[in-house]
């Protein structure tokens, strides 16, 4: 009983850390225009829309985050193997992984922009300096939180995988959660605020992303500000729930039917979420669905 209570405590802590990680991850990738919104940022100069948006194309989010977290976990593992205190080891691992992330971000922006020379897109050094540091800060938070989650699983819950392997698995999960949940807030909404709401992206509007702000020219920090409000927390809730429910079912039901209990509960959770998702989808389509004929003018 005591071990289950302890396990639930660790589960709650890991879920909370994962929520922070998800929120930071999504804000980081939106400031860098990583993931699917990247295609429009890349396309815009080719359509004649020069911009000051950061273009940090380092693979997709899941592989890139697989590397950052696996690297943070690998270095933390190495320091722990040298008898360094785990918290210090995780901080060092996250710091070094953040350094690698920052170097990748600068080379990606320089490479992509230099290859667009034909269309007259300049390299903005101030964009490089100010955005890279902000993405690095968010990346540090996300890496530190996720590596800590992995360490809690390994050390407190006795997960059989070594830390770097857990880092790889959860890093890919983190990238996938941020990519799937948070990106629409940036890629489908923020980049196209000048289009009719809910109109999708017509071919003619491809690359015509919003480039001017309330005052002056929009940069990626404005996009980070926007997506930190809804996209970030949504990604955080997504990744937090993934980690929490995964650990919760394992801690509580692992001992039923020689481990099959946890698997059955996992399948039930998936079914419950399918029902919820379907309900939300139908509800949203009914309320915000495709544009029909305007029913009637409210006034006049």
């Amino acid at each position: 009983m005591e071990s289950i209570v302890f396990g639930i405590g660790i589960t709650a802590l890991a879920g909370a850390l994962a929520t922070v990680a998800g929120a930071a991850e999504n804000t980081e990738s939106d400031i860098g225009s990583q993931g699917d919104p990247n295609s429009q940022v890349q396309l815009a100069p080719q359509m004649g829309y020069l911009h000051r948006i950061f273009n940090k194309a380092i693979a997709g989010e899941p592989p890139a985050w697989g590397l950052w977290i696996a690297l943070g976990a690998g270095i933390a593992w190495a320091f722990m193997a040298m008898q360094v205190n785990p918290i210090l080891a995780i901080v060092l691992g996250a710091a070094l992984a953040t350094f690698v992330q920052g170097v990748y971000a600068t080379t990606a922006y320089l490479g992509r922009t230099a290859s667009l020379a034909k269309f007259g897109q300049p390299v903005f050094v101030d964009v490089l300096k100010s955005m890279t540091t902000v993405t690095m800060a968010h990346a540090f938070v996300a890496i530190f939180a996720t590596v800590t989650v992995c360490h809690l699983m390994n050390a407190a819950l006795g997960h059989p995988f070594p830390l770097p392997l857990l880092g790889l698995v959860w890093g890919i999960a983190l990238g996938a959660a941020g990519s799937a949940t948070g990106n629409p807030f940036y890629g489908k909404e923020r980049q196209y605020q000048n289009q009719k709401y809910g109109a999708g992206v017509p071919i003619a509007a491809s690359g015509n992303i919003v480039r001017y702000a309330e005052a002056g020219e929009r940069n990626s920090l404005d996009n980070g500000w926007f997506s930190a409000r809804l996209g970030g927390p949504a990604s955080g809730v997504c990744f937090g729930l993934i980690v929490f429910l995964e650990l919760w079912r394992t801690v509580l039901f692992e001992h039923i039917a020689a481990g099959w209990g946890a698997i059955i509960i996992g399948i039930i959770i998936i079914l419950v979420f399918m029902v919820i998702d379907r309900y939300i989808e139908v509800w949203a389509r009914k309320n915000y669905g495709p544009y029909g004929k305007p029913a009637e003018e409210a006034s006049s």
């Binding site: 693979a59 592989p63 696996a70 190495a78 990606a108 667009l116």
Partner: peptide, 29 residues
Amino acid sequence: LGGALIATAFMLGGIAIQHPFNACLGPSW
């Protein structure tokens, strides 16, 4: 192998091998 550092090595190489072309692609490659 026992510490699964091979998982980190896998990702270190896997991202490093695709990044150069992924970052430099475009008409002025």
